[in-house]
Design a binder for these strands. Structure first.
Length: 386
DNA sequence: TCCTTACCTCC
DNA sequence: GAGGTAAGG
């Protein structure tokens, strides 16, 4: 059920001032995107401007121009649950109420392809892929408007925004999101990516081969709950995270699997967070990552040691020596961010987080493109020092 | 309730 | 030590 790798480039309208692919895809939200260097492309070291990655059981190639987001389907498979859920009654391009538009929910409603007139070499009509991209990048949200607001909220954002334009909060698959962030504890991005890749190659299904690389989807909860998983993951170098992965998978199954995740999107933020912390290996930080990145709770603030350092822009008296973030400090910092930035505080924090990543530091390429006048250079506005 | 420490592995 | 968590004081 794979697609010929030769499928053509398609596009949807999307101003480059609304989306910066690089920082959005490589900034630590998802660990499955890579800079794409086509083998045929000669001297393209790092600057092809194309990214390859997987979501919704599709291998995507993405790039952008000033006016368009362009995509190419490298390979695809049916969503595994498409046939077994109440598929048919959800036309792909129906309007979904704002705030309820979760990727996993859409996947669970993906109709079977035979219900469509086939469009060229792909499984679905172009409108389907377009909708997946709109959901994944939350393209319905006017990001420039939020930037303007956040700039007014605090100097710290104003000083970072012009260096980091158009970082979008992805709306990810909760399964991939949760298990990826279990892997993230005490690790940096490259090793997290390696571990996530190992999960996929060992427990995922193959999607396709492309230019000598095999692409896999993210494993199902069932696959990760199997009794042999912990031992195998230890062999593969997951360390103490191995037990958390299998244990969380097993518990999620006992709670209802994907249906349990769906319920969490309907609960309010605090309730969803509490549920998540009930899983082994999930503490406050990972729970907030999942709330923010795949359960549509945009007020969640994941406070890691890094964010904790940033928080000293806002709060005095956090102490200079402490290494570990205590629960009390965590709540203090998260509440402060929400107080300053409002209901989309988590998104604002993602932008700030990106702007402080070493890999992105002092790079002009992260500035808004020359033609972009939408996000004004910071004005001023004193609000510091609480 | 609040705060330390061990934990796997890689760099 | 690293973008944390769970166990124990």
């Amino acid at each position: 059920m794979t697609t010929a790798a030769g499928s053509k480039w398609r596009s949807l309208l999307c101003e480059s001032s609304q989306l910066q692919l690089k920082a959005t895809l490589l900034g630590g939200q998802s660990f499955r995107w890579k800079n794409y260097k086509s083998t045929g492309k000669g001297q393209s070291e790092d600057a092809s401007g194309e990214f390859i990655g997987v979501f919704a059981n599709i291998v995507w190639l993405l790039r952008q121009t000033e006016r368009e987001l362009q995509y190419r389907i490298v390979g695809e498979q049916l969503y595994p649950n498409a046939a077994s859920t109440n598929a048919a009654q959800a036309p792909v391009n129906s309007e979904t109420p704002e705030g309820k538009n979760n990727l996993a929910e859409v996947w669970m409603k993906v109709p079977e392809p035979k219900e469509f007139a086939k469009d060229s070499e792909l499984l679905y009509p172009a409108a389907h892929y377009e909708q997946l991209l709109r959901i994944y990048f939350r393209l319905d949200v006017d990001l420039e408007q939020h930037y303007r607001k956040w700039i007014e909220c605090h100097d710290h954002f104003a000083n970072s925004a012009h260096r980091f334009y158009a970082v979008r909060q992805l709306d990810q698959d909760p399964v991939e999101n949760l298990f990826s962030f279990i892997c993230s504890q005490n690790n940096h991005i490259t090793r997290i990516s390696d571990l996530v890749e190992k999960l996929c190659t060992n427990y995922g299904d193959k999607i396709c081969d492309h230019e000598g690389t095999t692409y896999w989807n993210f494993p199902s909860v069932e696959a990760l709950a199997n009794g042999a998983v912990e031992g195998r993951l230890r062999e593969l170098g997951f360390g103490y995270r191995a037990k958390y992965i299998q244990g969380s998978a097993a518990k999620i199954l006992s709670l209802g699997g994907l249906e349990w995740f769906r319920r969490l999107t309907e609960l309010d933020y605090k309730a969803a967070r509490t549920e998540l912390i009930g899983l082994p290996g999930i503490g406050p930080k990972v729970a907030d990552c999942v709330c923010l990145m795949s359960l549509n709770h945009l007020q969640a603030i994941p406070v890691d040691t890094h964010v904790f350092q940033l928080a000293k822009h806002y709060l005095s008296g956090l102490g200079n020596k402490t290494q570990a973030v205590t629960d009390k400090q965590y709540v203090l910092v998260a509440d402060k961010f929400r107080e300053i930035y409002g209901p989309y505080a988590g998104w604002a924090q993602t932008v700030l987080f990106c702007s402080d990543l070493r890999q992105f530091k002092d790079r002009n390429e992260n500035r808004a493109p020359p033609g972009d006048k939408a996000v004004p250079v910071p004005k001023k506005k004193a609000k510091k020092g609480n």
